[in-house]
Every structure is written in C-alpha cells, then in structure tokens.
Design a protein around this nucleic acid. Structure first.
Lengths: 185, 185
DNA sequence: CCTGACGATGACAGTGACTGACATCAACAA
DNA sequence: TTGTTGATGTCAGTCACTGTCATCGTCAGG
C-alpha cells in the first residue's frame, strides 16, 4: 500500500462525473475535481492527459474488446459482418454498466467539447477496426468503408439503446440497425 | 473604409496557414498569428472562437452547399442517393480550391487537435444532412444512417482525391466510393 | 536492521488559450 | 455638428496544462 489512499484515479473519475453532472463541464475546474478526490491538480494531470480524458477511461478497453472479437471471428465472414460482431462485443461491455454509460452519455451530449473528444475516440475505433479487417485480408478501401459503417451502426444503435428504458440487449440494437442500413443500400 | 487595413479575417487565415505549415500548430501561438496579420491577439479571438477555428472558415459554406443540393434533389430519389448528391456538390466546392484544400488537409492530418475539430465539423454535416433528409420524408433512423453513410463516403473519397495527384473529379471519387460501399453490403 | 533505488505524490513557478470591461476613433446618419 | 455604430486596441484576470524539484512510504539487497 502506498502512502496515500488507494485508487486515486478511480476517485477522480467518480468526482468528475459527479461534478460535471452537478455544475457542468465548463463550470468545473481541474482543481475542483482534484480537491474533491483528495489530490492535487498536478496529480490529476499526471493521470489524465487533459480535463476531457477523465470521462474516457474505458475507451481503450472498448476498442481492444471490439478488435479482439473481430480477429476471432470466423475467417469466412465478410468484412462488414466481422466488424459488426466487434461492435456487438463492445456493446456487451457497456451493457455491464448500463447506468454509468447512460449517465455519462448525458453529460457528453450536453457538452460540445466532450462530444468532440467522443468523436475522436470513435475515429480511433474506426481506424483500429480498419486495421483488424485488413489483417483478415480485406483491401484497404473495403476495410475502411466496412469499419466506418460498423461504427456508424454502433453509434446509431447506442443512441437507441440509451433512449430506450427497457432496452433489448445492445447486440439486438446493433442487429436491428445493421438490417436497416442494409435495406437503405 | 475603416481605420485599418481591410480583410483582417482573411489575413489571419492566411497567416495561420503559413505559420502552421512552417512551425506546426502547437508551436504557433495565437499572438504569433495576430502579429503576423497586423492585429492584436484580442482581435484574433473576436473573429475565431478558438485557435483551431481559423482553419475551418469554409466548413459552414460546405455544409450549406451540401444541404441545398439535397433539398433540390428530385423528390423520388432515395435518401442515400440524395445525400450522395449533396456530398458531390460539396466536393465541387473543394475542387475549386484544390491546392488550398490539399495544403490544409496536410496540416490537419498532422495535428490531433485539428483532426478532432474536423471530426466535429463532419458530425455537424452529418446532423444537417440527417435533417435535410427528414424534410424529404425519410424516417429518423433511415435519415441518420444515410447521412452517416454519405459522410463516410465523402471522407473516404476525400482521402483518395487528395492523395491522387492527377485526380479525377471529386464527384467521380464519390461515385466510385459509393459503389464500393454498396458492394460491401 | 540499514540503505539505496523506485514510484506516486506535493509544491510551485511559468506559458499560453481565452474572456470581460473599458477606451478609441473613423465612418455614417440625423 | 453631433450622436451612434462597429471594429479595434489595451489590460487585467482565470484556467488548462507543463517542467522541475522535493518528499516519503515501500521494497530489495546486504
């Protein structure tokens, strides 16, 4: 055990979520979050590259989970289907902490600066997905298009999943949304 | 005529592009840009909401152009095709200033903070496109999916158009990319 | 038990992005 | 002639973020 209370990182994440929900993102300083978590502002910036990142701690895990699912999908599966399997796997992760995901999404939706960061994370997921599809043999452009489409489905499905109180599983939302997309083409 | 040299805004945009290309975005302060354009830093922030915005002056026009094209598309055209027509119209705008578009895209691609802002602009274009498609009678989810798909095509086509020296027209890139997307489904 | 490397944190000064408030001054209208 | 307007300058202030050095439990080696 260290000299200080353990899990400073977790405390900062929780404090940030609470404060952002109460006063809003802009009205909360990094110092406020740090103080509320019992650390200094400097420590906050040692854990998070910037003030926004404190709300995106799980995004790397989400991306990794999705990519692993894609890599372990049957070799014969077409790129888009493989990518969608990845999105469904990522969705399972959110499903395990639905309440947190919903609360967080409300804050993000209310703050342009956070929306912007979320888009960057989605773009990162798109790039990672593209790479995973390339490893399966898809040509660059097909991989990019399938990845973009899958992430689109993920986003649209997420909005539906969040706004539906008694939601079916996230995977079901993905399947439904994917079907609608195919119908449009 | 005012008390000062005219077109302060245009001078700042040009100065920013030059300085970002020379030293990079982070190594250039807002004060540097202002000084180089012969104004004060305060004036810079009166014209641009933040340092990034100076590189996104044309995005509102691009969005408006695309939406107008969608609204004036034949009523019977399916949502995706109408949206793609909008993207092609937007592409024509870039085509008129290809050199500027390419130079700018290099800077944006090299700077995560600018990439992030670009994603926000694309998201805005997606939302506007969704709304335009809804006005044509498309249900919400179909409109959102078609808009996302069209903007995806726009992005992928743009990368190809930029990286191809003797490019065919932007509209041709859009058509080609759209065909590839349809083939994936 | 002593000791030195290690790792997480605190303390503090500094830069730069951005904002609010007020002053200035050419152009233009009454 | 005078009052208004609009774009700008000036200046002080907050806050995001960084570099640097000091601190002090922990743990391995002696």
């Amino acid at each position: 055990m260290g000299r200080w209370e353990p899990d400073a990182r977790g405390r900062m994440i929780k404090a940030a979520l609470d404060l952002f929900a109460e006063r809003g993102f802009e009205q909360t300083t990094a110092g406020d979050i740090a103080e509320s978590a019992g650390v200094t502002e400097r420590t906050f910036f040692r854990h998070f590259a910037d003030k926004r990142e404190v709300l995106f701690d799980g995004s790397a895990t989400l991306e990794r989970t999705a990519c692993e699912a894609i890599r372990s999908a049957p070799a014969g599966l077409p790129p888009l289907d493989a990518a969608l399997a990845g999105m469904a796997a990522g969705g399972d992760l959110l499903q395990e902490r639905r309440e947190h995901a919903v609360r967080r999404s409300l804050i993000v939706a209310a703050t342009p600066a956070l929306k912007e960061r979320e888009l960057l994370k989605l773009a990162s997921m798109t790039e990672a997905t593209t790479e995973a599809l390339r490893e399966r043999g898809a040509p660059q452009r097909d991989a990019a298009l399938a990845a973009h489409s899958a992430v689109t489905v993920f986003s649209v499905a997420f909005v539906h999943w969040v706004s539906t109180p008694d939601a079916p599983g996230f995977a079901a939302c993905v399947a439904e949304t994917a079907a609608a997309l195919r119908a449009l083409m």
